[in-house]
Amino acid sequence: MRQRTIKKPVEVVGMGLHKGVPVKLRLEPMSENSGIVFYRADKGVTIPLKPEYVVDTKMATVLGNEGAVVSTIEHLMSAVYAFGIDNLRIVLDNDEVPIMDGSAISFVMMLKEAGIKELSAPKKFLRITKEVKIEDNNKFAVLKPSSEIEFDFEINFDHPVIGNQKYNFKFSTKNYIDEIAKARTFGFLKEVQYLRSIGLALGGSLENAIVLDEKGILNDSLRFPDEFVRHKILDAIGDMSLLGYNFIGNYEAFASGHHLNHLLTLKVFEENAYEIVEFSKEEELSIVKAFG
């Protein structure tokens, strides 16, 4: 299997979730072994997609470098991971990736429009070689060795629409598009009101998030009965992209979020719980097939 980029540049203009201002997003091809980088065109600053460049995880995963930041990268990076893209330049003219409809499906459509190009260099994977775990009271996130890519997530909210939800996701690009990509981010009305009072979530609306009051949802309907836990998997896939490679292993979590996911990626490197591998179709057919 060889490294991937996109065939041609594509761009879109969308609304930033927190500042509520338009943002132009442009995806550009990169050559082999370039990795994935963000570029703030308005600042002239490049920010590599690496754990050490994470500067905030409270409301979203935020990267920063030389005084410039890029916020809410997880939905876009979730789609980029799902297509197995290794080399990409992500150009923005503001400090947020546009929220689009609150899921990753718009980014899936952008990548389909751009097309996938295979390069000459072999693709590298990060294989988890020993279990690593981050815990915070009853919350946890863990990566375990496995011959496949799998996500197991459980959430438990004291809310009549959410409650306890579990989802086991066996990764492939097709499964991602069918089962995960359309799941939207969600928030509670009282939290949205507070965030707006401090100048955040100014771009949030029923068009780009599931909004819940104390009894139900304010949107017309859900896309999946368990859309909430599916979105948590969408986020986790995006956060795990910070490992720098498509990983081979089993991710499991209970009530995890961006902060625990970030600590987990750091711990993988701190504990040397990985190896970088490349292989032919004959050696690891299931992984190659997962990425089409």
Rank of each mutant, 00 (worst) to 15 (best):
K144N: 11
K124N: 15
N138H: 12
P98R: 05
S147V: 07
A82P: 04
V142S: 15
V70T: 02
E148V: 08
M100A: 08
E113T: 08
V97N: 00
I73F: 04
V69H: 00
H75G: 00
F125P: 12
D95K: 07
E148C: 02
R127M: 12
L88S: 05
F140W: 15
K133N: 12
E135D: 13
I116K: 10
G84L: 09
L92A: 00
V91A: 01
V142D: 13
P145L: 11
L88K: 03
F107K: 01
D86S: 12
F125V: 15
M109N: 14
D101K: 03
D95F: 05
E135Q: 13
K139L: 09
V108Y: 06
V91D: 01
M109R: 10
K130W: 12
G84Y: 11
L126C: 14
D93A: 06
I73P: 05
D101Y: 11
S120G: 05
P145S: 10
A68Q: 01
D86F: 08
L88P: 02
V80D: 04
K144V: 07
S146V: 08
H75P: 05
M77Y: 05
I105E: 09
K112D: 05
E118C: 06
I90Q: 05
P122M: 11
V132L: 11
L111N: 09
F107Q: 01
E131F: 12
S71T: 08
S146L: 09
D136S: 10
D86Q: 12
T72N: 04
R89G: 00
E96A: 02
M77W: 03
K124D: 14
I116E: 13
H75I: 02
N137K: 14
A82L: 06
N137Q: 14
T72V: 06
E113N: 09
R89A: 01
P98C: 02
L143Y: 10
H75Q: 00
L143N: 15
F125Q: 11
R127L: 11
V132E: 14
M109I: 01
E135W: 14
S120L: 05
R89W: 00
R89Y: 01
A82T: 06
I128Q: 10
E131S: 13
P122T: 09
L143G: 11
A79H: 04
E148Y: 07
A114E: 12
V97R: 02
L119Y: 12
S120M: 02
A68I: 00
I128N: 08
S146T: 11
L76F: 04
K117N: 07
I73C: 05
I73D: 01
I105M: 05
A68F: 03
K124V: 14
V70D: 03
L111K: 07
S146N: 08
D101Q: 06
I99V: 12
E74G: 06
N94D: 06
P122Y: 13
F83Y: 07
F125T: 14
S106A: 06
N138G: 08
F125H: 15
H75R: 03
P145C: 10
P98T: 01
M77K: 03
D86L: 13
V132F: 15
T72L: 02
V69F: 05
F107D: 04
D136C: 11
D136V: 10
E118S: 07
